[in-house]
Design a protein around this nucleic acid. Structure first.
Lengths: 215, 215
DNA sequence: CGGTAAGCTGACGGCATGACAGGACAAGTA
DNA sequence: TACTTGTCCTGTCATGCCGTCAGCTTACCG
């Protein structure tokens, strides 16, 4: 499925080429977390990787193209988030645990990938379908699981049937993503990480089940 | 308070100067909503405004500086969001109305200013204090009002005292902001605007009061 | 030891940046 | 009308990044 890695001019990349390519990606990732996206230049990435700009252009069409590559890598890692909710029960203590683990999962995933996620979010908000697709890839499976969960609770009469399950699930996921990406902001504003987690967990549980989590 | 507008080299801008300056800001705003932030160049803004790059640099240090100016303008407009919650009661029907109006207020404010808000969000997430401050200016008063509301509900025993009110309020506001900025995304994904609003309203009411809104 | 393809870079035209000096312009003065 | 003054704009220039190409070096193979 994943065909060989190819250079821009069509040649297949060998052992050495792939290493260079990866090094460029690594350096790009580093730059993204230390300087504003707008100021990340090809020449800086190349310098950092100990190579020349021309080499960069051999593997990527432009900075955006390379970022997309990084984002794809990250999306693979993000598939793990699904396991935190798929097929688990939202009843009683189990539900409380699911909520807590999902919150912690989001927070730490975002901490790990904050720089690239920022850019993906921007690209998606700007309407770029490629970035939007990646964002979906990460959030979609979680959203779907939560949508199912909401639907179940609706069947039990705990949530108004008129509400759109996908709307609720999507909003909750957006909340998790947003809070995660502004973690530092919350902290520098007086809300500690330790305070944030319980709040999110509570809101998530409440939103999915219509009930407060058991103590 | 707002001293006269000054050029980069210290002169006070007169009538004509201010007009040019404003025109540059307007054109910048337009460019931001049509092209990716990363690709907005001084020369394009200047061309669009029918002037030269040198003129742009007379009024702004760089693109970022001009964006900050635009963002300040928007922040003033955002002060109106506060009125939707300040001093209003979350009890019964009134509470349901407050929730609904706040949601609608956020959604339409974001629709109106989506381009600049994207950039402000990015800047804030990247750790730029100037952008962060503007983001605060918009969200802070709403968050504070909601924090008070949560605290009241805690006093009534409807919300666990252990939870941090600011954490809950902040998370809910983040949710509103995030969903608002990805409105188009939701739509192109199958969740209609009409479905989104009730979901958000429901979640907001539930989060603040601990109870479902009355029918 | 050639042959072949991969891998890298120097160099170049093109364009954006940012600074300056000086020209254009409006308004007041005589 | 001519002159003055201060505001406003732009031509121009040095600098630096972009994106491409031809061509050199390196690795692998028979």
């Amino acid at each position: 499925m994943t065909g060989q890695v190819r250079t821009v001019d069509g040649r297949v990349a060998g052992r050495r080429g792939q290493a260079t390519r990866q090094k460029l990606l690594d350096c790009l990732g580093e730059m993204l977390s230390t300087s504003p996206y707008r100021d990340v230049k090809v020449i800086d990435v190349a310098r950092k990787a100990g190579t020349s700009p021309a080499t960069f252009y051999q593997y990527f069409p432009d900075v955006e193209g390379a970022v997309l590559e990084l984002a794809e890598e990250m999306a693979k890692d993000g598939a793990g988030l699904t396991d935190l909710v798929a097929g688990r029960s939202w009843a009683g203590k189990s539900g409380a645990a699911v909520a807590e683990e999902l919150v912690e999962g989001f927070l730490s995933f975002w901490r790990k990938h904050d720089a690239i996620l920022r850019v993906v979010d921007l690209g998606a908000a700007e309407g770029d379908k490629r970035f939007y697709k990646i964002r979906m890839k990460i959030l979609n499976s979680v959203t779907n699981s939560l949508t199912d969960a909401v639907r179940e609770q609706q069947a039990k009469g705990r949530i108004d049937e008129d509400l759109n399950p996908a709307g609720i699930a999507g909003s909750l996921v957006a909340m998790l993503a947003a809070v995660s990406s502004h973690q530092k902001g919350f902290q520098s504003w007086g809300v500690k990480h330790a305070d944030l987690k319980p709040s999110l967990t509570w809101l998530l549980h409440l939103g999915i089940t219509g009930r407060k989590p058991p103590k």
